[in-house]
Design a protein around this nucleic acid. Structure first.
Lengths: 297, 297
DNA sequence: CTGAAAGCGCTTACAG
DNA sequence: CTGAAAGCGCTTACAG
């Protein structure tokens, strides 16, 4: 093509706003520049930041994301997986709401790479998760650094892997003078825990490390009702850094952020690498949490 | 093809798990069985149920959904729109977090149909939104039916269309003895409003209709701190039916649900109809809210 | 270097 | 009714 013709083609293409058809392109290249994000987290508290991270990381590479919410329904999961494969996704990210539960679909032996993010993957898969132990350490060390010496841990059900991780890290630093108080993920349990602590004899804690922000909120409310000052008398740290919850407590809540957006970003880049045939180390990769300091500690 | 050959082909197809390549199919049919959902609701409180509805309605039709979170960034919005068009989406659903704000991208004159759901569309578009006036009526009528006579309305900023809609409906039923209390969407404002009401002279209300669940939560907490019984002394109704908030108030909150999942379902079916060339009435279509009765009223 | 052909995996229209 | 060809919109490999 002569230089002039080339220029003219380019100009016309621009004028009529020509954009290549990605379907046709994908047919040849065996790449659809599309990935699927599978999740059973309907409420979206955890998946949403993960998704935002995935999308953010991949949009620069021209990759779009199919969102597939499958509840806990295996049949629905299968339908979505089939639909994604039919549409020739370059890869799949599986995400969820619990590190120790897997999605109700079998993602092994798929013709495309799979990355697990914030959900349990099979042994030899690529799995990304937050480092809950490190996050808990951050929280407790911060309380220690503030001079707190009697730190209590009020948390969720012991059946959760992340609860055991966090409790383990708490123990490492705080010792085992105080029993870890396992309960449920609710404000109500936070209230109840405070009632229990203050009804028993002996010295009262000067800090409470809570298993999530909802519990922390219950704890803070209960302390205020008793006229106990936060953070003067008792410092509080939560977990999740659930913005809308943490910002609304009085005082605003210091909390551990699991860095789910970064986790999503990593998941996106990793599935892309696999799709392009680049080597990726298999196994569980833990990403660091960070502490968001507000006024409760 | 002979009957025997046909059977054999079918059998082998089943055995090797043959599934037609949707890309190739789309190339011919001019249908990708793919739509794009554009939203600027990062937090996802409103978009998430909409999305769940869209996905639920379309999965039966083999349609997958690209989720594009564009924040309020016009450049990012354009990138996502271009990516969707390149991938030959059959249609686009625009969604957001406010009925009276439009997304920072121009979606007119696109080669594919667009439906606006819970965000403002241009005049001649297809726009779906909740019927906030009807929802507010539901709430106030319920309070009246419970025998409440002095109903106060504590709500968000008057600059919000939905605030004015809800306040208008409240006025229709409750009259204008009590001034509507405009404020912000926070628990703090709920607290403050209660302080204001109880500091002024005259009869106290026996019911408070709140503009959203966060305000309602603040109101309920403030009333409890004053020793005022909910619902005995003052009945409370919120708006949004934000499950995790409404269920955690003490007592659990009666609230207006905007039916966003149904709205999403409608949006999905509507964009599908447009994509298939079926006629759809243009203009704003309001979908009904419903009241979720818990213990606060 | 330029230009035409082949082919990705399907579906549809047509010839036999 | 059956079977082969054409074509969707691209990209790549090849002949001139």
């Amino acid at each position: 093509m002569g230089e002039k013709t080339r220029e003219r083609v380019k100009r016309v293409a621009r004028e009529i706003g020509f954009r290549p058809n990605a379907l046709a392109r994908g047919l040849l290249s065996k790449r659809s520049f599309t990935i699927g994000l599978l999740t059973n987290d309907t409420y979206g508290r955890f998946t949403l930041p993960v998704m935002a991270g995935v999308s953010e990381a991949l949009v620069d590479h021209g990759v779009s994301v199919f969102l597939c919410a499958i509840e806990d329904d295996p049949a629905l999961g299968q339908i979505h997986v089939d639909a994604m494969l039919d549409k020739q996704v370059d890869g799949i990210i599986a995400s969820g709401k619990r590190l120790d539960r897997s999605l109700p679909v079998d993602l092994s032996n798929l013709p495309v790479p799979v990355v697990y993010a914030f959900t349990q993957g099979p042994p030899d898969s690529v799995t990304l998760r937050s480092d809950d132990a490190q996050g808990a350490r951050l929280a407790v060390e911060w309380l220690v650094k503030l001079g707190r010496r009697r730190i209590v841990h009020v948390t969720g059900p012991e059946s959760f892997f992340s609860v055991r991780e966090r409790a383990g890290a708490y123990r490492e630093i705080a010792g085992d003078e105080e029993p870890v108080m396992y309960g449920v993920w609710s404000e109500g349990w936070g209230h109840e825990a405070v009632a229990k602590i203050w009804s028993r004899s002996g010295k009262k804690p000067d800090a409470i490390f809570c298993g999530n922000d909802q519990i922390a909120r219950g704890v803070i409310d209960a302390l205020r009702e008793r006229g106990i000052g936060v953070p003067e008398d008792v410092a509080i740290v939560g977990f999740d850094n659930w913005e809308i919850m943490a910002a609304q407590t009085r005082p605003p809540l210091t909390s551990v952020d699991m860095g789910l957006k970064a986790l999503g970003r990593e998941a996106g880049l990793t599935v892309l690498a696999l799709a392009e045939g680049r080597p990726v180390e298999t196994g569980v990769r833990k990403l660091p949490c960070h502490l968001v300091v507000r006024q409760s500690a």
